[in-house]
Amino acid sequence: MSNATTSVPSGLDAGGLDQLSPDVRSYWQMVGFRLRHDPVTLFFGAVILFVILAAIFAPLIAPKDPTLTSMIDRLKPIGYKDYLLGTDELGRDMTSRLIWGARSSLLMGLMPVVFALLIGGALGVIAGYVGGKTNMVIMRIMDVFYAFPSILLAVAISGAMGGGMLNGLISLTIVFIPPMCRIAETATTQVRGLDFVEAARATGGGTGSIIVTHILGNVLAPVFVYASGMVSVSILLASGLSFLGLGVAPPTPDWGLMLSTLRQAIYMNPIVCALPGVAILITSLSFNMVSDGLRQAMDVKL
């Protein structure tokens, strides 16, 4: 999804390689080197790290119990008493709920992408490497899933299976498998035709060994970049599902769900109602920016 064009970090073309210290030479070392010198990506990476830490240490950081309701302190504004960010429609502490909400948002943002990366990536590499009929069958099935806009596909599967986090996970994973598969297939097909793969076959390497030693390393970069861009999409879709009541079940704090339940209160306390959206926006924006940075850093032709 993310293709924003910011200027490429200062020229590290092939000619500049010689100036690098001798230990920076493998592809991944190059990528790391470029990332370390890209302040924008580093900044948004830090934001993500911050969100991740908040999610992990939520029980320690959150000032209150996120599920503790209070009939008197409902929909209080920012800074009311010791409610730093106000309270929601049941008088629960927004700060705590937002911190706890990072958990399910991150989980639903990362897990489907990881699973889809594994499943779709594997299918794509197999389809690309084996080719022929196998390729046709796998890719045609993927094409069918491509016939659905992603949110529609997620809603269709979740809607039919019913709500809940697991079903949401499954449906989002299914949403991301086809694009991962396609990326992996394209990359594999390209690599498969290169001479070094033929050379490996000529030395008697088996399919599995060639895929592991020679294909994966070369397919990983494009697939990984693509997957990193999908995290933000996954976060948005997952929060959308929760918003529709198809994701995490109440009273679990979840940003999408919070937006949904707070929607009735926009006339009374609009700012507080908008807060979970800000959290989603910041997280998804950060993942998008980091993904962009990764893509640029990995765009080294070696």
Partner: peptide, 24 residues
């Protein structure tokens, strides 16, 4: 055994060359 022409695609860019030689 075979020696290929294209020196750009005949070696795996992600492997140190000694690993490429040792693969067989």
């Amino acid at each position: 055994q075979m020696v290929f022409q294209d020196s750009y695609s005949s070696l795996n860019p992600r492997l140190p060359v000694e690993d490429s030689i040792a693969y067989g």
